[in-house]
C-alpha cells in the first residue's frame, strides 16, 4: 500500500485559496469549517513590509497525536488507506481531545456557533441525521471515514479526499491531475491549484515526484519538533511559521 503524501511549494503558491474553496465544496464543509485553510502573515513595515502565506491541510501525521489521545479510537490512522487519518463518525463521542492534541489546528467541531449568520444550517436544514443538507451535497458518503456531511457532536477533518484517492490504481507513484486517467482520483485541493503548487503521491515510492521534489527542493515539515511527522511537506521560503505576537502589540512596537 502506498503512503500518501502531499507537497506544497510555497515559492509557487499565490495564496489564492482555491484549495480552500475546492475542499469546502468537494467535502461540503460549513462556511468557516476550512479543512484546508490558507494562513497569512504580515510583517515589517512600508516600504519593506512582507506578506507570507501558508496553505494548511491535515498533515496526516505518521505519528498522529490526535490518534493517541482519542479515547474511543474514533480517530485512527489507516495503513490500508495510505496512512490517512480518519474520524469514524459512528464512534466519535465529541470529547474534542483530539482537537486539543493536534498541533496543526486542522480538526473541526462543526456543532458550534455559526461562524456567519444567517446560519446556513437553517437555510438548508437537514432531513436526516446529518448537520445540514445543502442541495449541492456530494453524493459520496462514508461515515466510518468522516466522508460526507457530519452528524451532530462529532469531529471532522481533511480526509485527503479518500473518496477520490481510494480509486487510484494500485502501485501508482503520483496522482497528477494533468494525467487524464487519474485526475478524478486527485484530492480536490491539489487538482485545482492553478500555479501547480501542490503535488500528491506515494511517499513510499522513491521514484515518485513528491519524493523527487522533497529531495531536490529540501522539503520540510511544519512544526517538526512536535514529532508528529507530517505526510505533508513544504518547499520553498516561507515554511517557517512566525511566533505568535498579538497584532496590537506588534503594531505598537
Amino acid at each position: 500500500m502506498a503512503k500518501w503524501g502531499m507537497v506544497i511549494d510555497l515559492d509557487k503558491c499565490t495564496g489564492c485559496q482555491a484549495c480552500t474553496t475546492a475542499c469546502s465544496m468537494e467535502n461540503n464543509t460549513l462556511p468557516g469549517e476550512t479543512w484546508q485553510d490558507v494562513l497569512y502573515y504580515n510583517a515589517g513595515e512600508y516600504p519593506s513590509g512582507q506578506m507570507k502565506w501558508l496553505p494548511r491541510p491535515c498533515m496526516q501525521c505518521e505519528n498522529p497525536s490526535c490518534v493517541h489521545v482519542c479515547p474511543t479510537r474514533a480517530t485512527y490512522k489507516d495503513p490500508d488507506a495510505g496512512g490517512i487519518v480518519f474520524v469514524d463518525w459512528n464512534k466519535c463521542i465529541g470529547c474534542k481531545y483530539c482537537m486539543i492534541a493536534c498541533p496543526y489546528g486542522v480538526r473541526f467541531y462543526a456543532d458550534e456557533k455559526p461562524l456567519i449568520e444567517p446560519d446556513i444550517r437553517d437555510v438548508f436544514p437537514s432531513d436526516n441525521a446529518q448537520l445540514w443538507s445543502p442541495p449541492y451535497q456530494n453524493p459520496e458518503e462514508d461515515w466510518r471515514r468522516g466522508i460526507g456531511i457530519q452528524p451532530k457532536g462529532v469531529v471532522s477533518k481533511c480526509t485527503f479526499c479518500y473518496h477520490k484517492v481510494k480509486h487510484a490504481p494500485e502501485g501508482i507513484a503520483d496522482l497528477d491531475e494533468d494525467n487524464p486517467d487519474v485526475k478524478e482520483y486527485v484530492p480536490a485541493c491539489v487538482r485545482t491549484c492553478a500555479p501547480k503548487a501542490r503535488y500528491f503521491g506515494d511517499l513510499d515510492n522513491p521514484e515518485s515526484q513528491v519524493n523527487q521534489l522533497i529531495g531536490d527542493k529540501h522539503g520540510v515539515r511544519l512544526k517538526d519538533h512536535t514529532g508528529n511527522k507530517p505526510q505533508v511537506y513544504y518547499l520553498g521560503a516561507g515554511a517557517g511559521v512566525p511566533a505568535f505576537t498579538p497584532a496590537d502589540k506588534e503594531n505598537n512596537a
Binding site: 489564492c16 482555491a18 474553496t21 475546492a22
Partner: peptide, 8 residues
C-alpha cells in the same frame, strides 16, 4: 483543469 477560488 484548474480554477480560481471562486470557480468552485
Amino acid at each position: 483543469g484548474k480554477l480560481c477560488p471562486k470557480g468552485h
